[in-house]
Write a protein that binds this DNA or RNA. Structure first.
Length: 575
RNA sequence: UGGGGCGUCGCCAAGCGGCAAGGCACGGGGUUUUGAUCUCCGCAUUCGAAGGUUCGAAUCCUUCCGCCCCAGCCA
């Protein structure tokens, strides 16, 4: 055995970032002995790409430091939450490849404890029942530049507050009649400290506790204490919660919690041409602009899954964007790179013709029909090969034929040659038109000496195009997507629903019903991804694909340097 | 005009007083039976701006400018 030099980095090494540095410090100085993080979604919608980043950070940190990551549903608002969302979120987490430590947890598991702590606060004269209406409370709160005023109910006695809170809990008051507030400081420059509400009356059936409660703790009174109960050491959230940190710490100091977690904030993920707001995504769903939360155009985890993005790609993308406190917007191209990077290596190749144009090989006898073999991956023999029927009549894509073209067009041109992928070189001799003058057939000849070999004359055709055998092709439906939003930053277009709807791209879905595929594709299983050569990556639809009626979603096109050249040519009129 | 944050290449992002990593995008060359992949090359004399400290500053100090978040009985 020779001495090995330890690799400086592990293969899946994640970039260092301020959270890792901080945790490493905490461990080194003994501030903490272990690392426990948590992913705390509210079950009020489906998870999106932004949550994927939070998931990767929280689970990634726990893994990197040999700790644990919990899953805890932050279910303190029964009006907006449901079991459907819980199930969907759990599905997404598993699909992404993460498993949390221990049971699935719920903030509602701690309602009893939270309620007792609220009474404890009342007993310490640090909480009171306030009868101000929402409008009055807002007025009393002051403004960004003016201090608030004390509520007239602020000095009720602990006994009175306790009695009132018990009445709230018993359901003796209507919603909105009163709330329980922490007694902190109405003149605090941080508005979150101006006697924040910690319990409100909500007469909704809760998806877990049913009708047991009619008072529910607010986020601020729930999150930190839940972290403490679970032994969370590093509570990671996004920047907008930074102003809540003093409050988070205030509750932990006033209450006899078993542990002192600390909160750290990072900037949320934004991607251009899309939105990462559950509220907005829910609006698209409710307005019927998309076909549900997992519509392939949605930036939800389930939408991207249905679109054909690999879980690995999502994880790689999240890792590639880094963890910082800078508000930024990541280019969609960075996500797309991660998607292609994975599929290029893993997706078997196949041939599909999107817009069929018939080819007749005049010198190929129909009775000579043969089975060719094609590798499933050009760079990976281990992926095997498949059989490809070849015959006198074929289909190629309309886009791959022109009666005349300049030398930049490396496809089939009348009077020229082209290579049929995995098969022979053919020569275009003549065209057949219908009554409208449209070309319906191209008559060609093939060169029998070119199967797996260059032409005997040594002149290699410049182009290679995909094809399918007319007698064996399988009809498939292909759904092609364009970006859901026409503007680069729909997130900042405005918060109102109208602005959101106006930014939606009306042509984000195109359905192609007459595509023809090589027969092997009939055996595709739902969610299986292929590269349709020269076109892109496509996935058999998770819900609607069957071998009787194959349906593929276009995940993403191949990088296309020709498209750019061709566009420039047509724009300058020089086709 | 209160409080809290943030400003390094078109985008993301290292950098932690010693003389600007990397990825995406983009441009160009090579290989190629996918105009894909792969590969090679190029891409910030400059770090929001201006002063200052220092032998030396993206890193320290001062001032200024710009952007984001906070006034839900949402999270």
């Amino acid at each position: 055995m020779t001495a090995e030099i330890a690799p400086a980095t592990t293969n899946q090494n994640k970039a260092n970032n301020f959270l890792r540095q901080r945790i490493a410090d905490d461990l080194e100085t003994g501030t903490t002995k272990r690392v426990v993080t948590r992913f705390p979604p509210e079950p009020n919608g489906y998870l999106h790409i932004g949550h994927a980043k939070s998931i990767c950070i929280n689970f990634g940190l726990a893994e990197a430091f040999g700790g644990h990551c919990h899953l805890r549903f932050d279910d303190t608002n029964p009006e907006k939450e449901s079991q459907e969302y819980i199930d969907a979120i759990i599905d997404d987490l598993h699909w992404l490849g993460f498993q949390w430590h221990g049971d699935t947890r719920f903030a509602s598991d701690y309602f009893e404890q939270l309620h007792q702590w609220a009474k404890l606060l009342i007993g310490k004269n640090l909480a009171y029942v306030c009868d101000l209406s929402p409008e009055q409370a807002r007025a009393y709160r002051g403004s960004l530049t003016e201090a608030g005023r004390n509520s007239p109910y602020r000095e009720r006695s602990a006994d009175e507050n306790l009695a009132l809170f018990e009445k709230m809990t018993a359901g003796e008051f209507d919603e909105g009649h009163c709330v329980l507030r922490a007694k902190i400081d109405m003149s605090a420059p941080n508005i979150n400290l101006r006697d924040p509400i910690i319990y409100r009356i909500r007469k909704f059936r809760h998806h877990r506790t049913a009708n047991k409660w009619c008072v529910y703790p607010t986020y601020d009174f729930t999150h930190g204490q839940s972290d403490a109960i679970e032994g969370i050491t590093h509570s990671i959230c996004t920047l907008e919660f930074e102003d809540h940190r003093p409050l988070y710490e205030w509750f932990l100091q006033q209450l006899p919690v078993p542990n002192q977690p600390r909160q750290f904030e990072f900037s949320r993920l934004n991607v251009n041409y899309t939105v990462t707001s559950k509220r907005k995504l829910k609006h698209l769903v409710d307005a019927g602009l998309v076909d549900g939360w997992d519509d392939p155009r949605m930036p939800t985890i389930s939408g991207m899954r249905r679109r054909g993005y690999a879980a690995q790609s999502l994880r790689n993308f999240c890792d590639s964007t880094g963890v910082t406190r800078v508000n930024g917007v990541v280019d969609m191209s960075q996500l797309e790179f991660a998607v292609r990077e994975h599929h290029n290596v893993n997706a078997p190749r196949a041939m599909v013709v999107m817009q069929p144009l018939k080819i007749v090989l005049g010198n190929y006898d129909a009775s000579d029909a043969e089975q060719l073999r094609a590798p499933n991956h050009p760079q990976n023999e281990a992926m095997g090969s498949r059989s490809l029927p070849f015959g006198r009549e074929l289909y190629i894509d309309r886009e791959d034929f022109r009666e005349s073209a300049n030398k930049k067009f490396k496809r089939l041109v009348l009077g020229k040659k082209v290579r049929l992928r995995n098969a022979y070189v053919i020569f275009a001799e003549s065209v057949v038109r219908d009554e409208q003058g449209e070309i319906v057939e191209v008559h060609c000849s093939y060169d029998p000496a070119t199967l797996g070999a260059d032409p005997p004359d040594g002149v290699k055709p410049k182009g290679v195009i995909q094809w399918v055998s007319a007698a064996h092709a399988v009809g498939i439906e292909v759904r092609e997507y364009d970006r859901l939003f026409r503007i680069e930053n729909p997130e900042r277009a405005g918060s109102d629903e109208q602005a959101l709807l106006e930014s939606v791209n009306p042509n984000s879905l195109r359905v192609h019903r007459n595509c023809l595929a090589e027969p092997s594709l009939a055996e595709a299983r739902p969610e299986q991804v292929f590269q349709f050569e020269r076109e892109g990556y496509f996935v058999a639809d998770r819900h609607q694909h069957t071998s009787a009626k194959p349906v593929f979603n276009k995940t993403i096109g191949l990088r296309d340097s020709w498209g750019k050249v061709d566009n420039q040519a047509s724009n300058s009129g020089a086709k």
